[in-house]
């Protein structure tokens, strides 16, 4: 049940730990992560490859089971749910947008958008459907197949689908990774509008500073740990933060470069 307290975070992780493999080949993807995702906000999760950002999102969304720790989404203990409960959750309370391959190729745009509702054997709220479709700007493409839509249009259809059930959270994994700048702007603009106008909570994984700039807040992960938290990110501040997280150059350069990165990292944590 959606929580009545509108200032409480929409999703929470406590002491979240995810380990792949065991013994010598164990890989710690997430190392005791504590994070609150704000309600009605667009939060970006960023970090270099292998930082655990995708893993964090997968655990939050119930697509992956944490090794230890707690995940709560809108009052539900996602980390402890059974497969069937998770399926229901995905149908009704969560929305997903992936980087690519978001749509069922044999269904039209309209059918793709209403798919979660159809799966739940529910009926589509026509007024909401119309609003979402208009916000996304796809009214004249509803009966086309995915193969007849451009990359940007496909992602917008995916976004519309993510919203159709009025989910608690929309999880987006590099939604503009495959798109050109114009299409990216369209999709991100839509996500932004859904947060501003419809009060939607969105969690987005990305590695692009320009994409993160659309967010209200940017979280930074490195080596499975939360190392940065930036409010109202801009492309420049995000770039600076990422630079300080970059691995130090080996060999050439002054010794202070190694120290600089950890100092900058702790600066990030302390100073907001």
């Amino acid at each position: 049940m959606p929580s009545p307290d509108t200032t409480a975070p929409i999703a929470v992780a406590r002491a979240l730990r995810k380990v792949y493999g065991s013994g010598d080949t164990a890989v710690v993807a997430l190392d005791h992560v504590d994070v609150d995702f704000e309600r009605g906000r667009l939060t970006a999760i960023m970090g270099p490859s292998g930082s655990g950002k995708s893993t964090l999102m997968h655990c939050m969304a119930g697509l992956d089971r944490p090794t230890s720790g707690e995940v709560v989404v809108d009052g539900d203990q996602v980390g402890r749910m059974s497969e069937r409960q998770l399926t229901r959750l995905r149908r009704t309370r969560l929305g997903f947008v992936f980087q690519a391959f978001n749509l069922i190729p044999t269904l039209s745009a309209r059918e793709n958008i209403t798919l979660p509702v159809d799966l739940a054997r529910g009926s589509v709220d026509q007024a909401w459907f119309d609003e979402v479709v208009d916000v996304v700007g796809l009214r004249d493409r509803l009966d086309h197949r995915p193969s007849e839509l451009s990359g940007g249009q496909q992602q917008r259809v995916a976004c519309a689908r993510a919203l159709i059930t009025r989910p608690s959270v929309v999880f987006a994994d590099e939604p503009t990774g495959n798109l050109d700048s114009v299409a990216s702007a369209e999709v991100l603009g839509f996500l932004r509008r859904s947060v501003d106008r419809l009060g939607q909570s969105v969690v987005m994984v990305t590695h692009e500073p320009s994409t993160a700039a659309y967010a209200d807040r940017a979280l930074f992960l490195a080596d499975g740990r939360l190392v940065g938290d930036l409010a109202d990110p801009t492309p420049d501040t995000v770039l600076d933060a990422l630079r300080s997280l970059a691995p130090a150059r080996v060999g050439t350069g002054s010794d202070s470069s190694a120290g600089t990165s950890s100092a900058a990292a702790s600066d990030l944590l302390d100073g907001r």
């Binding site: 149908r91 997903f96 799966l119």
Partner: peptide, 9 residues
Amino acid sequence: LMRAVGLGR
């Protein structure tokens, strides 16, 4: 994808 969107087993 379909399972992620809520298709049951």
